[in-house]
């Protein structure tokens, strides 16, 4: 009896270890895959820098038009930092333009993913972490540096702000990954994800605080969106944490809200994947 339990435990430990190893190599592969295309990195970073300049000037004009020089409670340095950090984070979280899974579902290649030893959600997430790691170097640092050189950035006053921002950005990646995964997974039922993807792009652009800080809108609306949808947790939350827009207590509440959304979204992701596997009919011929 005891012998059986011992071997089971040993077997389970071996599985966990092999999962960890596989995930690590998937992450490394994700990093390499994106770092192969240097032209794409330069072109993309240049685009983020252009949009960073556009958004900063517009928001600074808004702030300059008010008596206190504040726009939605952000001062000039906070607005600048908000814009540039989000230009980098939108690539680290890859809020738009991920069709890997949907394309593989349409072509039928997804069968290979299902045969692999690691569950698909975990495998795709591991590769995405590698991709995000490269995005931090190639797509987050350059625009933030340009923002710092051209406009100057906000200096956090609290010692724990930067580590908390790192945690907040990591949670944003989890939330955004799960959202993207589910949008792609609709291909199991619909085959063509363009409609859903368009809805995602529209909602995530408007409600994540990318086009303008959500705090410009009425407070009840902002609060509803923030609690009721995952979108503000993707870009607005990490930016607000970094520029110390609110007091320490509410800042922790923002990160706690992100953690809750990350858990909900990942569980939903796994559920969607299980549902899909039960009724999967592979396309192709």
């Amino acid at each position: 009896m005891g012998f059986v339990i011992a071997t089971e435990t040993a077997a389970r430990q071996a599985t966990i270890w092999s999962h960890v190893r596989i995930c690590a190599s998937l992450a490394a592969a994700g990093f390499r895959r994106y770092s192969t295309y240097r032209q794409a990195t330069i072109a993309g970073a240049a685009t983020n820098i252009t949009f960073g300049l556009l958004r900063t000037y517009v928001l600074l004009a808004v702030a300059g038009g008010t008596a206190a020089g504040l726009a939605a409670g952000y001062d000039r340095a906070q607005l600048t930092t908000y814009v540039w950090v989000q230009q980098g984070l939108m690539v680290v979280t890859l809020i738009w333009g991920w069709f890997d899974l949907g394309d593989r579902i349409r072509s039928g290649d997804v069968v290979i993913d299902l045969l692999r030893p690691v569950p698909p959600v975990l495998a795709y997430f591991a590769a995405d972490v590698g991709r995000a790691g490269y995005a931090v170097l190639g797509r987050f640092v350059p625009p933030v540096l340009v923002g710092a050189l051209v406009f100057g950035l906000y200096r956090p006053a609290r010692w724990y702000t930067v580590p908390l921002f790192v945690l907040s950005a990591a949670l944003a990646l989890v939330i955004c990954f799960a959202g993207r995964y589910m949008v792609n997974a609709t291909a199991f039922w619909l085959l063509d994800t363009r409609g859903i993807d368009f809805a995602w792009v529209l909602a995530s652009g408007m409600l994540s605080g990318l086009y303008f800080p959500l705090r410009f809108l009425p407070e009840w609306f902002t609060l509803t969106v923030w609690i009721g949808t995952p979108f503000p947790s993707i870009l607005q939350a990490p930016a607000d944490v970094l520029v110390e827009r609110v007091a320490p207590g509410p800042t922790l509440l923002i990160v706690a809200g992100q953690a809750a959304w990350a858990a909900v979204m990942m569980v939903a992701c796994v559920v969607v994947q299980h549902r899909a596997e039960r009724r999967l009919v592979v396309q192709g011929g």
């Binding site: 295309y37 032209q39 794409a40 330069i42 072109a43 993309g44 240049a46 685009t47 820098i49 252009t50 949009f51 556009l54």
Partner: peptide, 14 residues
């Protein structure tokens, strides 16, 4: 620039 489809975004949509 083959893999640079993002660059034109900066002056078209930008």
């Amino acid at each position: 620039w083959i893999e640079a489809a993002e660059l034109p975004n900066s002056f078209t949509y930008g």
